[in-house]
Design a protein around this nucleic acid. Sequence first.
DNA 1: CGGCATCCGGGAAGATACTG
DNA 2: CAGTATCTTCCCGGATGCCG
Lengths: 233, 233
Amino acid sequence: MVLQNLTQTENVPSRRRYEDACGTAHALDLIGERWALLVMRELMLGPKRFSDMRADLPGISANVLTQRLEGLERAGILVRRQLPPPASGQVYELTEWGYQAKPVMGALGRWATRSPGHDPSRHLSPVSLMLSFQAMGQPALTKGLDATILFRLGRETYTLRFADGAIDAQRGAAEHPDLVFTGTAPAVAAAVYGGVPLEVLEAEGALKLEGDRALAARFVTLFPLPPKASLPG
Amino acid sequence: MVLQNLTQTENVPSRRRYEDACGTAHALDLIGERWALLVMRELMLGPKRFSDMRADLPGISANVLTQRLEGLERAGILVRRQLPPPASGQVYELTEWGYQAKPVMGALGRWATRSPGHDPSRHLSPVSLMLSFQAMGQPALTKGLDATILFRLGRETYTLRFADGAIDAQRGAAEHPDLVFTGTAPAVAAAVYGGVPLEVLEAEGALKLEGDRALAARFVTLFPLPPKASLPG
DNA sequence: CGGCATCCGGGAAGATACTG
DNA sequence: CAGTATCTTCCCGGATGCCG
């Protein structure tokens, strides 16, 4: 019994798709399934392997990750690529169109931080942290800042560059960073979004700083969270 | 047996929530369920009744709509309001925070129209159409335009105003419109996004125009769709 | 290890019918 | 008009096992 597991091609009408001309509705047909947008998030700063994505998406199961990768590939949002030897294996990489969803995720995330239920002290993946800096950075505060900061977060390293008022995040290590943070993403988030003093995090061993400490002190003030929406009731 | 139908309060950990500090993930906890974002879309231009929303969201079932409205109310995104007599009954209305999701939906919709699978000739609700104008309007094209256009779409009427390069959409009829379209939302979309000439739609009886026809001719050119993403494979 | 196939239990979504 | 009640379908999540 062949069971026809072709999980929805574009032309098969499904009760689970909206089939609406509205762009927003179509977006949900593309990325509205559970985990889909978070899978894209993890690829936003460069290609990743299956198992690395699984590690950074706590709670996702292997078969769901497989299904989402298939769906996003079919939609043209990402591609699967064979790595050349010796690092062989395959990675998943967003297409140019897939990368263009970055500002959408930024806008969505900024909106959601106004939720009374948003708690910045929970789990955070390294990619989420770096993207949050790009999403939450205030031009008025970063204006004139010219600096390079390195983040060593577990097995991943990222570089954040401030230049001309813009914020750029990249995977990998810059050559001559002004400042290096070593620790976990939630620890950095505690400093930036939770208001926990850097000294406390250092004393706890949760975070290590090397380099320009004045820059670190300024850095943690650059990403103010918007005011919470008040619950009417 | 009381059956405990408390469908997820904020503190009960659920396998179905991401429980992540990432703003994007939290957004999905708030509005990631099926239909949630489209329910918000229908309220974006003002409050609505239960049955009107049901009519404009083809395919949603009454119980799912009930659940979404409950969830969005609990999240603080909308409120339920009693209408004063004689128009009694109740309506649902976005909170100030809920209305702030408008640019998010615009960005999402704009991104999704680049999908090869997006088909602007499908069903479209009146609200979707009006929001699409705000989302897709090009400042370079609308610059200097000062005009008021009325849309009579079934039982709903909307006013679109161009002024100072901005586009404003409101429910209800303006006093002295320069142009009036009467028909259905998909018919207007066919003219604006499908490239169907206005004369053809008029000849078919799908659309009626009254007023400044030169304005109509310009109007249909103001919202170019972005180029499709090419499928790599 | 990396990825896919399969089976299972629970629960969300969909369809229909019904009620105040 | 504004929802419940009920039943069915099928997606999600977990576990296991296969294969290169």
